[in-house]
Write a protein that binds this DNA or RNA. Sequence first.
RNA 1: GGUCCCAUCGUCUAGAGGCCCAGGACAUAGCCCUCUCAAGGCUAAGACACGGGUUCGAAUCCCGUUGGGACUACCA
Length: 470
Amino acid sequence: MTEKIRVRFAPSPTGFLHIGGARTALFNYLYARHNSGSFVLRIEDTDRSRSTDEYIEAIIEGMKWLGLDWDAGPFRQTDRFDIYRKYVDRLIQEGRAYYCYCSAEELEERRRLALATGKMPKYDGRCRNLKAPVPGEIPAVRFKMPQEGQTIVDDLIRGMVVFDNSQLDDFIIMRSDGTPTYNFTVVVDDVDMRITHIVRGDDHLNNTPKQIHIYKALGYEIPKFAHLPMILGSDKTRLSKRHGATSVMAYYEMGYLPDALVNYLVRLGWSYGDQEVFSREELIKHFSFEHVGKAAAVFNPEKLLWLNGQYIIHSSSEKLTELVMPFLVKEEIIKEDQFLDKAWLCKAIDTLKERSKTLVELAKSLRYYIAEEIEYNEKAKEKFLNAKSRDLLIELKDSLFSISDLSHQELEKVFKMIVEKHNVKLKDLAQPVRVAITGVTESPGIFEVLEIVGKEKTMRRLEKAIKVIG
RNA sequence: GGUCCCAUCGUCUAGAGGCCCAGGACAUAGCCCUCUCAAGGCUAAGACACGGGUUCGAAUCCCGUUGGGACUACCA
């Protein structure tokens, strides 16, 4: 019986949940679910000057929206300072850590000097063997790093990565203000929370040997590591605001479905043969680190948009009806508390979902079904609402007058009749009608549109179009 | 600068020595379908960064070069 797998996502609340963080969270989540393990959420907020409660809420909101449910937490490091203190004291007592009285300014100065003279900016260890405290200075605590030999990181994605210990320096584990630092807290927490697999971004690979030595000094087993490749922007630099939206919730605002984003994100670095579209169950079933690539990936908004379109097409119209409501309000197509016949709206969405790539697009297209009045696109009006179409529109209006129910079948009959009588093509009638009813030149099939718009609005809009032509 | 990581179409990727004069997907172009726009179908163009090895045989293994990235904080 092997030990149960436990993974964690440990964001620092210095910003919203972004695309890169979301993918790290996703891979952790998938690995946990695939192995029936558990997934811990931990907030790394030891940098008090940059962390805020708003960001913690935002990260949780993003995780929930994506459906990345966790099993324990969220834990906050700021609630755990006494625990870190205990471990620091232990390391000092055992001679694995020591007080350092060098001031931040001195350190900075030495670092600048080393860099300027082309030397490695490494702490020189001058406080390592201090016998007595330096008066007037409040010390930080440094970890005593071995200076010889090698440290090997055995990574599930990268394989064996070897570091020379001579490259590592005695890093600070507790600041002079008594707060612990990242490379220390991360180990203490991962030990304390019995994390078995550390799945995180590539940018942490170089920190790993430092952390391994903390594990060793504390006498704990070293977990497995999996360092994920980074996500880049279109210019192959680290993804940032310059490349467009990076906050996960911005994609909610733009009308993306969480499952589409998840599906897109998982394919950035992971693959399963040639398959592109996965259900959540398939993702959990097939996920493994063996199929995670090593190279950084460029975030491609076009493919995400395509995937979102696929998810919309394959979503039930009932579900889309619910999802689109907030967007109808935001686009001011309906009022907050306005009544809408859901069954009717569902039929309208049936006609629109294969031409909408986002919920925002879907909401906007719904306008001509829902609104009382429509506005004409100028070009469309000029091209199709003119003397040439006038008689056809009048004829249609008159023909529809006697029909009580505008069904697809009835409409088709009437259109055919008029077209034959006037010896024109169907499109010569369909396009003017389309503009008269929707205001634009693209829409679902004209018979479906009229059926859903209904007789009353259809008649009114036809009359208005005829009047406009004059 | 030092250390570490990475390298297949524009982009995401398949590929674990012969199945590959390299497959799929997005995007692009053309055609079909068609009342418009989509969706869908078909087709086209498009890549193993470079140079050395190893091997009967290399996209796949090794070395180097080049190019990208990360880390190098009393940030995480």
